[in-house]
Amino acid sequence: MPRSDLTHYGASGTRPPVDLSPLPADDGENDDDVVALPLRHTWRWVAAGVLGLGFVWLASSLWNNENVDHATIAKFMFSGQIVHGAVLTIVLTFLAMVLSTILGVVLALMRLSSNPVLSGLAWLYIWVFRGTPLLVQIVFWGYLGLLYKQISLGVPFTDFTVFAADTNTLIPAFVAGVIALTTNQAAYTAEIVRAGMLSVDPGQKEAAYSLGMTPLFTLLKVELPQAMRVIIPPMGNETISMLKDTALLSLIAVLELYTVAERISAQNLRQVELLVVVSCWYLVLTSVLSVPQYYLERHFGRGSRVLGPTPIGRVVALLRRQPKPRVTAKESL
């Protein structure tokens, strides 16, 4: 290659002369020993002030609104009915999330399986339950009695039955609600778990297999723990969605938080006040849910990033006023 192609000093190809004379000695006469400060973010403070004022104005307009009866809010915030509804909301969320996670993992593994029957079945399930509105599915399970009057267990196409019961006694509203939320959520969870499994380097499976690990052992000890890092954040999201989606069960008269509030306001006509009450409850519950998510993310992130102290650990350290721990050579590797 001709030399001129490599040079950036113009067509002539000549380079500027290099000054090899030594730097002048630091005689202490100049002010080079000066402090360097980071950029000042003046506009952040201005923006924060403007927004703060706006929020104060909004809050006061809500608080002083004559259409809002503060006494009603206070009366129902911790009333027995509302607390009972909130407990049922928590129970529904917990049951639906646990059951749907189990079902979702199974569906994800079926979908990833090399067996076309299993993967086809999982695909069909996800297609149906992700493709129709949750609202429709809730109503469907709630009114299953209209479709099948009786549910029986026996040999198909014969009169032989082991067990038979009326659909509405076998599946009361609460059970129908859990089934609806679980089956719908499982379809979404399956896709999240599948994405997590696909994020694991294929070399991990090969290394596990080369050590004589069986497919099930490899899944449980090598693949799923690594997939969890990708699975946990969206699953936290899904749990928060689930908590709020339980409100849809008011359609089939499950007495969770929102249904209770709706029934109370139907009697006292204080719709806004009761909506404030349930909103406060949902906000508190969703805030509480983000705590386990933080710790799960930490747990499954081990090995992939350096873990600092937890918020609680930071507070404890501050209270104890420990000197900063010295980083030893081994830890800093």
């Binding site: 991990q204 290394a207 080369s210 690594q226 090995g303 992939s304």
Partner: peptide
Amino acid sequence: IGMVFQRFNLFPHM
């Protein structure tokens, strides 16, 4: 049969 890979393939979470 033991095997050692080009890209090590250690289990990163352990």
